[in-house]
């Protein structure tokens, strides 16, 4: 059964970035996903609601700073999704 949450390209890009890195800033994710601020916020919220990622909000020089990292559940789900893609490709 495919994970519908990760089937969305923007959410897949977010999770892939977070799997590859220890943590990523909001602006970096915006650049990687090539999406708007509003859209990225929505996708991050969805991933957070399903406990795939953790979001940390801090202030830096009086500006809000959002940093994200993948959770253990997110790592497992990504691995399952990736294995599914490989399996489907080989079939």
């Amino acid at each position: 059964m495919i994970d519908k949450l990760l089937f969305n390209p923007i959410r897949l890009k977010i999770i892939s970035s977070l799997i590859n890195n220890s943590n990523c800033d909001f602006n970096f994710l915006k650049e990687v996903t090539d999406s708007t601020q509003g859209n990225l916020s929505i996708q991050l919220k969805k991933l957070k609601q399903e406990n795939y990622i953790e979001i940390e909000k801090t202030f830096c020089n009086n500006y809000p700073k959002t940093s994200c990292r993948v959770t253990d559940k997110g790592k497992i789900k990504f691995e399952e999704f990736f294995n599914y893609l490989i399996k489907m490709k080989n079939e």
């Binding site: 089937f7 390209p9 890009k13 892939s16 970035s17 990687v32 893609l85 489907m88 490709k89």
Partner: peptide, 19 residues
């Protein structure tokens, strides 16, 4: 099948972008 390839390419592309 195209979607599967596209998703694999997306993952590979993102991994390449963080050096």
């Amino acid at each position: 099948m195209n979607n599967i390839k596209k998703h694999i390419e997306t993952i590979a592309g993102v991994i390449k972008s963080t050096k």
